[in-house]
């Protein structure tokens, strides 16, 4: 699949295809969406198991669920403050969804739905729209003062206001492209080096020895990708928290 003729095909892993037979065809339900359902199911089972045990001294599974809860709760409290409490489930859902999306992608044969710009951009848009709606609800038209910092000289307004508006809009782009590019780059690298292993492995007697090098690179890359999976989920969640802070406090 990876090697067609002598070319390296690193991109076909991102192709969508309908699953679940006729249903998938009818409603464009792809394997990407199936893995989203798996991510939601895993998150749900983890948190449900955590709540169901509810032990005073948690076991391993309960400790995992509780540490995820307290990690995001602490992040929201530190970034947004006490007013951020009601936005905690939102940030938690974002974090777990992205985290499980990234981690599921590390399983062989699995699909990484966070490697699709449509997905990351939609998530970023959900964050951006939510943050803007929250800001408008809390501050009304006073929210627009966000685009012109207090104390700046008035004659600079024609420059500052467009810059601030563009920077506010580009949050959506930077948030989505960061996650998308990280996941795509990682998975393309894995595929390319895996193809090297196969191509070099076919070079007669020395093949297996030469192929060991890209294999070693791939082992390191897998470890690196696990780091990236956690890091990008963390970055997505903390940027969401920071944007929520701006929405709640306006600077």
């Amino acid at each position: 699949m990876a090697v067609e003729g002598k070319t390296i095909d690193a991109l076909s892993q991102f192709e969508l295809s309908p699953v679940l037979g006729i249903f998938g065809h009818a409603v464009s339900f792809s394997q990407s969406n199936l893995f989203m359902v798996v991510a939601v199911a895993l998150t749900w089972f983890l948190m449900k198991a955590t709540a169901d045990r509810g032990a005073m001294v948690p076991g391993r599974l309960q400790a995992l669920g509780e540490s995820a809860y307290e990690f995001i709760q602490g992040m929201v409290r530190d970034q947004v403050g006490d007013e951020g409490k009601k936005y905690f489930p939102f940030v938690f859902s974002i974090f777990m969804f992205v985290l499980f999306g990234n981690l599921l992608g590390m399983l062989p044969y699995a699909f990484t739905f966070t490697s699709h710009i449509v997905v990351t951009l939609t998530l970023a848009a959900v964050v951006w729209v939510s943050v803007t709606v929250i800001a408008l609800q809390r501050h009304g038209t006073h929210f627009f003062s966000y685009f012109f910092p207090e104390g700046a000289p008035t004659w600079l307004a024609p420059i500052i206001i467009p810059v601030e508006i563009i920077s506010y809009l580009s949050r959506m782009v930077s948030l989505s492209v960061r996650l998308f590019a990280n996941m795509v780059a990682g998975h393309v690298m894995l595929k390319v080096f895996a193809t090297f292993v196969v191509l070099l492995g076919g070079l007669g007697a020395v093949g297996p020895f030469v192929a060991a090098m890209p294999l070693a690179v791939n082992v390191a890359l897998v470890g690196f990708e696990f780091l990236v999976a956690f890091l990008q989920a963390y970055v997505f969640a903390i940027l969401t928290s920071i944007y929520l802070h701006d929405a709640v406090h306006l600077h």
């Binding site: 295809s17 464009s28 359902v37």
Partner: peptide
């Protein structure tokens, strides 16, 4: 499928 992916994402 890309459009469907986005819609399903929102629902999920």
């Amino acid at each position: 499928l890309l459009v469907g992916q986005m819609v399903w994402l929102l629902l999920i």
